Computed example of a mutant assay.
Amino acid sequence: MSALVVEALCKSFGGLRAVDDVSFSLGETELLALIGPNGAGKSTCFNMLNGQIQPDVGSIRLYGDEIVGCPPRTVWRMGVGRTFQITATFSSMTVMENVQMALLSHHRRLRALLPFAGGQYRDEAMALLDRVGMASQAGRACGTLAYGDLKRLELAIALANEPRVLLMDEPTAGMAPRERLQLMRLTADIVRDKGVSVLFTEHDMDVVFGHADRILVMNRGRLVAAGSPAEVRANTEVQAIYLGSGALYAPEGAA
């Protein structure tokens, strides 16, 4: 069974068709990239998948369950995690406290135990931080972290609800080249170890072609190509969209 199945998804804003009849599936434990130039409709598509925007028409099924019409909180509780292009953390709180708050929400104890939050789920929070390489910074305030570390923290927060599907919007945006590769290796490890299915958007073609199992390409609201990295790299329409001519990123040593 596919983790996520999207069928005939459409969304318009006034006279602009931002997403136009988009259909695809995300396989179990698959690392699937969604790429396209600015304005292609990627963010609108992403926002529909986790309930932030409701589609005009179409279907989104999570392990067979229809989630169109569900608010983001419900989609999150059903097992869809998300990271954002711009990190969304509490800057005045510590790294540990940010993850604890996500765990309190996951366990539905956020309001009842808010005054005692500092002592709750510390072991679980530390395990998540250790998983993303942030355990040594658990006591630091988020406002003092480097941007790459904030991205790692956001990944730990997204994993707090034990997601079956993880949506990552521009996960390496603003990161140095080495940090980008490290984060995507970490994500690939999580896919393998935790059995999570990942859909991510990304502008860095080295990241996309180096780590994705499959690639979807959007342009002007429509899905124009889908396939393995090799198939998408060789697609003439994709080449025209990105470069006008020539080829997309090829691995070192390739012709």
Rank of each mutant, 00 (worst) to 15 (best):
A112W: 05
T83P: 06
C45Y: 10
M78H: 11
T87H: 00
G79F: 13
M96R: 13
Q137K: 15
V238T: 03
N235Y: 04
D149C: 06
A234L: 03
L167P: 07
S2W: 05
L62C: 11
A240K: 11
A255N: 03
A173T: 08
D123V: 10
S136M: 11
G119P: 11
L128G: 09
A226N: 09
Q137G: 07
R222E: 08
R222F: 00
L104H: 10
A135V: 15
I67M: 05
M184G: 04
A141M: 13
R109K: 14
D65M: 12
L104V: 05
N161F: 05
R164H: 13
P171S: 00
A225W: 01
G51I: 01
L183C: 03
D213S: 14
A141D: 11
K151I: 00
A156N: 00
E252S: 13
E237A: 09
R61W: 08
D130N: 13
R61G: 12
C45P: 10
Y147T: 01
R131W: 02
E30W: 02
E66A: 14
D213W: 11
S91G: 06
S228N: 02
L186M: 12
A188R: 15
G15W: 01
M168T: 03
S23Q: 09
L113Y: 08
S136K: 15
R82S: 01
V99I: 05
R180I: 11
L16I: 14
K11R: 15
F116V: 12
H106T: 15
R180H: 07
M184T: 09
L155W: 00
L113C: 10
